[in-house]
Write a protein that binds this DNA or RNA. Structure first.
Length: 812
RNA sequence: GGGGAUGUGGUGAAACUGGUAUACACGCUAGUUUUAGGAACUAGUGCCGCAAGGCGUGGAGGUUCGAUUCCUCUCAUCCCCACCA
């Protein structure tokens, strides 16, 4: 009997499937569509085991849906713009394009090796001009509608890499790549107005089936808070300081104000006497690195010399500046209420500013720092009101005098998309001396990224030094003009790629409405949780913006979302080259086969949990496959001439029916691990049954049974099951078959085990028919020695019977 | 500081709406077969106890005939955000 030779089998079917393209998603198909998507990879060079985990889970699901009669779209592509390509180019002298496309070739081979069932014809590569043409089109569309704008703004700047960094690339105040200091630098930047959609980005979450923690994280990131904007007049000047507060009920306790050092009002209101001190403080805060700011928990500030008038009582209060007030949130100024805010309290104590208590706890329990809602004191006419009542009344009063308005604030900032980098999509904007900022007309797209570029690190985009690119003519007046040289953040590319899969070869639109109607929105999206507040938020913004442009007729791009867990090294730590705990999937495939890895990854634990890679666990799964293969081969080679006529046949059918039932229930919940344990249990039962119900004498029923088992194993082990499926004499690929249904009548056992409890403790178990009545059971139970000894001399007070499960007896 | 997740054997983990805790696998122990390459097979394996029995799902309470599951408090570990007014 031939042993399980994964190399031979996987090579064979890999070739067959590539040739016949069995996973093509048909645009014209009557069956219900199912759009199954995994987050496309960055072509870093090699597929690592985390990719495998992500993609195999997505692939299980696609195969399951396909077998359940859906017209499945299961595409793949590459997020191929980005900095690593540029770094490789600088380090090794390879052009970013060459490096990227070589990596894509390699990763495509690896994806085939996984046994992934993609529709390869729909591949999308974001660095292809046919793709980024439409990324640029998206930019223009947002630009037209005022959702893309340019602004001078402070950004993270790496002092070593000479480039701007996204917030997510700053780790603990340092550059994620080189580990050097990050400072704040003011630059002219392009931004997308994601804040316009802040409210809908919150409410839309109610429509989608996403992990609750992901929804919560997005809500927190958007950070909606309701409050009021209050105007404080600067004493003896025309200037007004606006502040945002959620606690207008504490207005009587505002004893000073603090402005952010960058607040433009600072230079206007600072007095002559204080000027020098203020200057000094501002230059000091500017020089601070991100790390300084994070470590420094002590609050600092200086007095501007100016005073403001509290609009509620005309009290004169001093105006300070301090860098604990952020320019980017609210109005860049606060009213400080040191009695009821910890930060203000710390500041007041340090600089000996007055502290006035204006709220006390309702239960009158004195607390050192009371920051919660309570009852007002020392608050003029409002004394005695609760915080909630006071809020409404104070706003009502001040609104009348135009001193305050209701206001909602968000933590969410507009999305900064400019990058001073080469390997990205050019921003389709031209600067003309006469006409100013001019968008490139749609007919001139794409603005092609030049290929031969000198990649030096100067702090400006290398494109600035490419004369052929940089110098151009103005599309409006035809005069001399220059191009925008910054490129777009790669997250722009990935904010709409899922739309392109519906119609990847369209050269007239980013995708036709017809095809998007056919496929979108995405029904199932699988990917890492690390994209929670980035890609997953940006994509939602794009979808809503395109919908408002009349291009889409749905509100949310991803109806169902699941995160795969993270695979750690065998030592339980995050895999990294420096720790030497990286698992190379290629080596494992060579040794154990793709099917074994797919199965092991599903067996190791709940899919959303992940965990450490355990080489022994993989061996265990491989052992199962070896045994299963040999067992199935015996069935395959049994001569096909006998017919069963035995009660044992019912046992066989029952085992298979129970498996189908289990897998069909666990699969939709992505409980892949229990599916695999189900296969193992089933095989153990089958091996035992074969001893009483010989395969050779009953080959027909055995062949039917094992074929059914293969069907439910097919999504996990596509190569092995395909091989055995044909060996059993079946026709057509197993992966295009219908998912089997279980025979419900076989799921009911003739006899069930009922546990007998006395006072909550199990004392015996009885094998009875499922129809048995409580009285009968009670009678049998009393006759059991194991039970009787606990009933001796006692009266039975009550008993409970849960059908086929438990009989609980309570005595005195 | 805020938010989230997770605690079950030596290990990864099961347990349907509260109903026999530890399925499945790894590891380990003993035995068989003298077995070349990551062995196979059989038996055993939560803890204490010779046994009967008792104790066991991070800890302490509670609800219940019955709690890994529900409630209250608490401890530990991990992740994310973080001076957000």
């Amino acid at each position: 009997m031939a042993k399980y030779d994964h190399k031979k089998i996987e090579k064979k079917w890999h070739d067959v499937w590539t040739e016949t393209e069995i996973y093509v998603a048909n645009d014209n198909d009557e069956r219900e569509k199912y759009y199954n998507l995994v987050m496309y990879p960055y072509p870093s060079g090699d597929l690592h085991i985390g990719h495998w985990y992500n993609f195999s889970g997505g692939d299980f699901y696609a195969r399951y849906k396909r077998m359940n009669g859906y017209n499945v779209l299961n595409p793949i592509g590459f997020d191929s713009f980005g900095l690593p390509a540029e770094n490789a180019a600088i380090k090794r002298g390879i052009a970013p394009k060459t490096w990227t496309y070589d990596n894509i070739d390699n990763m495509l081979k690896q994806l085939h090796r996984i046994g992934a069932s993609y529709d390869w014809d729909r591949m999308v590569i974001t660095s292809d001009p046919e793709y980024y043409k439409w990324t640029q089109w998206m930019f223009l569309e947002l630009y037209k509608r005022g959702l893309a704008y340019k602004k001078k703004q402070v950004a993270n700047w790496c002092t070593d890499c000479n480039t701007v960094l996204a917030n997510e690339q700053v780790v603990d105040g340092k550059c994620e790549r080189c580990g050097n200091d990050v400072i704040q630098k003011e630059l002219d930047q392009w931004l997308f107005k994601i804040t316009d959609y802040a409210d809908e980005l919150i409410s839309g979450l109610d429509q989608v089936d996403w992990p609750e923690r992901t929804k919560i994280a997005q809500r927190n990131w958007i950070g909606r808070s309701e409050g009021a904007e209050v105007n404080f007049k600067v004493d003896g000047s025309k200037h007004v300081i606006k502040v945002f507060t959620t606690r207008i009920d504490t207005l009587y306790g505002a004893t000073f104000m603090v402005l952010a050092p960058e607040n433009p009002l600072v230079e206007k209101i600072t007095t002559k006497e204080q000027f020098e001190l203020v200057e000094k403080y501002i230059s000091m805060t500017k020089g601070k690195t991100e790390l300084d700011r994070m470590q420094e928990k002590v609050k600092t500030g200086v007095f501007t010399g100016a005073y403001a008038l509290n609009p509620i009582n005309n009290e004169k209060i001093p105006v300070w500046i301090g860098d604990y007030v952020l320019m980017g949130y609210g109005t860049g100024a606060i009213m400080a209420v040191p009695a009821h805010d910890e930060r203000d309290n710390e500041f007041a104590k340090k600089y000996k500013l007055p502290i006035i208590e204006v709220v006390e706890p309702i239960n009158n329990k004195k607390e050192i720092m009371f920051t919660a809602y309570g009852k007002l004191i020392n608050s003029g006419d409002f004394t005695g009101l609760t915080s909630e009542e006071a809020k409404t009344k104070i706003i009502a009063l001040l609104s009348k005098e135009e001193k305050a308005t209701k206001k909602i604030n968000y933590k969410l900032r507009d999305w900064l998309i400019s990058r001073q980098r080469y390997w990205g999509s050019p921003i389709p904007i031209v600067y003309c001396d006469k006409c100013g900022e001019v968008p490139v007309p749609e007919k001139d797209l794409p603005v092609v990224l030049p290929e031969e570029v000198n990649m030096k690190s100067t702090g400006e985009s290398p494109l600035k030094y490419e004369k052929d690119f940089y110098d151009t003519t103005c599309p409006k007046c035809g005069g001399k003009a220059t191009r925008e040289t910054d490129t777009m953040d790669t997250f722009v590319c990935s904010s709409w790629y899922y739309l392109r899969y519906a119609d990847p070869k369209n050269d007239r639109e980013f995708a036709s409405k017809e095809k998007m109607k056919q496929w979108l929105p995405v029904d199932m999206y699988i990917g890492g949780a690390e994209h929670t507040v980035l890609h997953l938020l940006y994509s939602r913004f794009f979808t809503k913006a395109l919908r408002d442009g009349g291009y889409l007729d749905f509100d949310e791009p991803f109806m169902k979302l699941r995160h795969q867990g993270m695979i750690l090294g065998p030592d339980g730590l995050k895999m990294s080259k420096s720790k030497g705990n990286v698992i190379d999937p290629d080596i494992e495939v060579e040794k154990y086969g793709a099917d074994a890895i797919r199965m092991y990854l599903s067996f190791m634990g709940p899919y959303e949990q992940g965990g450490p890679w355990n080489p022994n666990g993989l061996v265990g799964v491989r052992r199962f496959l070896d045994k299963f293969y040999e067992f199935a081969q015996i069935i395959c080679s049994a001569s096909n001439n006998q017919d069963a006529n035995s009660i044992k046949q019912a046992d066989l059918d029952k085992i298979i029916s129970k498996l189908i039932d289990k897998v069909s229930r666990d699969f939709p919940e992505m409980k892949f691990n229990t599916c695999i344990s189900g296969f193992m249990e089933t095989m153990n039962s089958l091996v035992a049954l074969a001893k009483e119900f010989p395969i050779t004498d009953n080959s027909k029923v055995w062949k039917k049974a094992i074929s059914q088992m293969l069907l439910v194993m097919a999504p996990f082990a596509p190569f092995l099951t395909e091989e055995l499926w044909y060996n059993l004499g079946n026709n057509g690929s197993i992966h295009l078959q219908q998912w089997p249904t279980s025979d419900k009548s076989l799921l009911i056992d003739d006899l069930v085990t009922v546990a007998i409890q006395v006072n909550g403790k199990v004392r015996d178990t009885l094998l009875v028919s499922p129809g048995a009545e409580e009285v009968d059971l009670l009678k049998i139970a009393k006759e059991s020695d194991k039970v009787a000894k606990y009933l001796e001399g006692k009266n039975i007070l009550k008993s409970f019977y849960v059908k086929s499960k438990i009989l609980s007896i309570v005595t005195d």
